[in-house]
């Protein structure tokens, strides 16, 4: 079986979500190529050539691919699809934007966000924000799949390139859409969906001012910051901090929930975290049912103590 992986990269760097996508692909395919698309992506292609599972790195470096417009990239991938049985991308906003468009061009039903491969045509994917796991069989000749990066190990890399790098000269110019710009969030903290440690705050923080306590704890741990919907609705933090069914789904190594009671909505977004710590003054709070470690106490006492213990 031949597979094509669509690499995600930012500013010449291969995105961390690409490596687990390669290992998911390797469970289905014996021959694997990776496609790096961009305006300037040669360095990312060089990094991709280090994955030991790959045969070829295809590099579509062209100004028409500026800003990763799905229209142009999907057309390119659909043109290449003839040679492949499987097409994979990470289930990041990049992959989710692009692959369904590819699938529709190929008249294929894409399989989103897989967390396990059961067989060559059967995959497991979360539904209802992870409250259920659906086992799905695909009848399409070609499979178009996005991979949940937190569910697969990172593919192995060699010290020197093992795959051949092959430049593609294709140019696809859609005149219907244009890239205007990318405003990256301040990079002083890790991004929520790929962070290894997350500190989240809830309504019990009481105010935006008090939420700074969460920031201090996060900075001590080098963690990303999350929030419950209640904290977002109360205006303590912006919407993009929200972890939960209608917010971001996260699965870090360590998730610290501070002053979060644990509404179903929130639990759905974080219960696949490896270790969950809950700090809450209500011993009956549902968050304790999913937490590995709980501290029953006032967060305004416990969190400063935790910061000072961690700083030691």
């Amino acid at each position: 079986m031949q597979g094509l992986i669509i690499a995600e990269h930012h500013e010449q760097q291969l995105a961390p979500v690409t490596a687990p996508t390669v290992s998911a692909a390797a469970t289905c395919c014996d021959t694997l190529d990776i496609l790096v698309i961009g305006e300037a992506c040669q360095e990312a292609a060089n990094s991709a050539a280090l994955f030991t599972d790959l045969r070829q790195v295809l590099v579509a470096e062209n100004s028409c691919f500026k800003g990763n417009l799905a229209e142009n990239s999907a057309t390119l991938i659909a043109q290449l699809a003839n040679d492949y049985d499987y097409i994979f991308a990470p289930a990041s906003t990049f992959g989710k934007n692009l692959l369904p468009r590819v699938a529709a061009l190929l008249d294929v039903q894409a399989i989103s966000d897989i967390v396990a491969v059961k067989s060559h045509d059967t995959f497991v994917r979360p539904i209802y924000a992870g409250n259920g796991l659906a086992t799905v069989q695909s009848f399409d000749d070609k499979k178009v799949i996005t991979v949940r990066p937190t569910a697969f190990a990172k593919a192995a890399c060699a010290d020197t390139p093992t795959a051949d790098i092959k430049p593609l000269t294709t140019s696809i110019e859609s005149t219907k859409s244009r890239h205007v710009g990318l405003e990256l969030s301040p990079a002083d903290r890790p991004e929520l969906t790929s962070a290894e440690v997350i500190v989240s705050g809830g309504r019990a923080l009481g105010s935006a001012e008090n939420f700074k306590l969460i920031e201090q704890l996060a900075d001590t741990l080098g963690a990303a910051i999350g929030a419950s919907r209640a904290a977002v609705d109360a205006g303590f933090v912006p919407n993009d901090y929200q972890v939960g069914q209608t917010g971001k789904i996260v699965a870090p190594k360590l998730y610290i929930a501070v002053g979060i009671s644990g509404a179903i909505q929130h639990l759905a977004g974080m219960k696949d975290s490896k270790v969950i710590v809950a700090i809450n003054k209500d011993p009956e709070a549902p968050i304790f049912q999913v937490a590995n470690y709980g501290i029953v106490g006032d967060l305004f006492t416990v969190v400063p103590e935790l910061i000072s213990a961690l700083s030691r």
């Binding site: 011993p283 937490a291 709980g294 501290i295």
Partner: peptide
């Protein structure tokens, strides 16, 4: 194009300690 073979609940987290 696809068939859902089954829908299961994910494994329950073991309860932790206080």
């Amino acid at each position: 194009h696809v068939k859902v073979l089954s829908v299961d609940e994910p494994p329950v987290r073991e309860s932790g300690i206080i």
